[in-house]
Design a protein around this nucleic acid. Structure first.
Length: 422
DNA sequence: TCTGGGGTCCTAGGACCC
DNA sequence: TCTGGGGTCCTAGGACCC
């Protein structure tokens, strides 16, 4: 998997305003129009078209803080992760056709290895990749090229403002690049660095490494090395095994009743179990938390607790049992809850099972969970679930999240197919 | 009125062991 | 007044990412 030193050249392919671009594939009225996609619960802007950026809408800005005169002309969509995930896979398919090694780094970014391609062909090949992705999938992208991931990221960011959309990292680029935009430099570090006069990527790369490491930690020291062209992170073509799976949501409305809270944690636990089994993993422990509303001036409470299993399990019944116990133990009736979450911890592969001297694994458990998963895959999520998460027919849970501008599942559900009239 | 979700890695400090 | 040294493991919190 490793790339021989000296030959390494990496590209970073990144979807422009990715979620907005996904929405635009199926809704041409959004093209060239200011558009944003909101976080869950229709809370904040998490993707903005260039037109929306030009209006001054900030990343992470809450919808209710966007002035009403701007909102009149603004197209707003609720997050549709089923759609974005599917489009993301299509982009990766095109890349895997062109490049031997592709690391899907996030839903909208992939690193590619350019080794095996002549240096003169690096840029033309990346231009070809961009064109294919635009034509075949409908997503505009940019590509940054560099000897390390950090430099490829840097070039990618700079490529956004070029007509070609493909750019190779150069000394000049590093000299002008703002330190706060460097991959691995967040808000806190940027502030500290600037206070000592470090404002560009070039400045950061020239700091004394020993002093940098002792004051900022080994992570930023690696970033510095990468800026100097020394790779510290390899391409990860195989997806590393997950350590934890978390399902959490803010509620559309605050809830106070323990039954509503139980219903929520139970729903999240079942969803987490689905993800767990899809990856053929088992959980060694469970974690539950809930939150009062941090934006309200009321007494806050944020209880959280975890428990371990004697033997790891992927059986929803075992996990629900723990989650219900933890929820009951932490619930206090004096508070209104705004958010809850369930985590599965200490994940291990299903095939590596530590036996229990006093208990026997039940072969029927696996069979039952298979039926449950197959049923939900075939008939839609929640088709078959446990009573602890059930709501009365034709009603919604009190805590259901708001999604008032959700687009269809165009590519993943038959009922979501786009109708075209001639 | 309305304010996201899901991850990783590193470090410091405490508990505990011999 | 003086009060060891060295190790592991776990957890909480902080930083970062998209």
């Amino acid at each position: 998997m490793g790339i021989p030193q000296g030959l390494t050249m990496l590209g970073l392919v990144d979807g422009n305003n990715f979620y907005v671009s996904c929405e635009r594939i199926f809704d041409p009225t959004l093209r060239n129009a200011p558009t944003i996609v909101l976080s869950n619960n229709d809370g904040c802007a998490i993707a903005r078209s260039n037109e929306a950026k030009a209006l001054g809408i900030k990343m992470g800005q809450p919808l209710h803080e966007i002035p009403s005169n701007l909102r009149r002309n603004l197209h707003v969509r609720s997050a549709n992760f089923a759609l974005y995930g599917d489009i993301s896979n299509r982009v990766a398919t095109v890349l895997k056709d062109l490049f031997a090694q592709v690391e899907m780094y996030s839903i909208d970014e992939s690193f590619i290895a350019l080794d095996g391609i002549k240096e003169a062909d690096w840029i033309p090949t990346c231009v070809e990749a961009r064109q294919r992705i635009l034509k075949w999938v409908g997503i505009p992208t940019c590509v940054g090229i560099g000897p390390t991931k950090t430099l490829a990221k840097l070039a990618n960011k700079s490529a956004k403002t070029t007509p070609q959309g493909v750019l190779r990292a150069t000394r000049g680029l590093v000299r002008r690049f703002p330190v706060e935009d460097v991959w691995g430099v967040g808000r806190k570090y940027a502030q500290r660095l600037k206070s000592e006069g470090v404002t560009t990527a070039q400045h950061l790369s020239e700091m004394d490494p020993t002093s940098l490491q002792s004051r900022y930690g080994v992570v930023l020291a690696r970033t510095q090395k990468e800026l100097r062209g020394i790779p510290c992170a390899e391409l990860e073509v195989e997806e590393p095994q997950r350590q934890q799976i978390i399902v959490s949501r803010s509620f559309g409305k605050e809830i106070t009743d323990i039954n509503d809270l139980m219903q929520a944690t139970s729903t999240f636990a079942q969803r987490a179990c689905e993800k767990l089994r899809r990856r053929n993993l088992q959980a060694g422990g469970v974690w539950v938390f809930f939150h009062t509303n941090p934006f309200k001036d009321v007494p806050q409470y944020h209880p959280h607790k975890s428990l371990s299993f004697v033997i790891p399990t992927s059986d929803t019944r075992d996990i629900l049992c723990m989650v219900e116990g933890l929820t009951k133990a932490m619930y206090r009736d004096a508070y209104a809850w705004k958010k809850a979450g369930v985590g599965l911890l200490d994940l291990t592969s299903e095939t590596i099972a530590q036996g229990d001297l006093f208990a026997q694994a039940s072969p029927r458990s696996t069979a039952l969970m298979n039926v449950l998963d197959q049923c939900n895959e075939k008939f839609g999520r929640g088709a078959m679930s446990f009573a602890s998460s059930a709501v009365a027919p034709d009603t919604k849970a009190k805590w259901e999240m708001r999604q008032s501008n959700l687009s269809q599942a165009f590519t993943t559900r038959w009922s979501g197919l786009l109708n075209v009239r001639l």
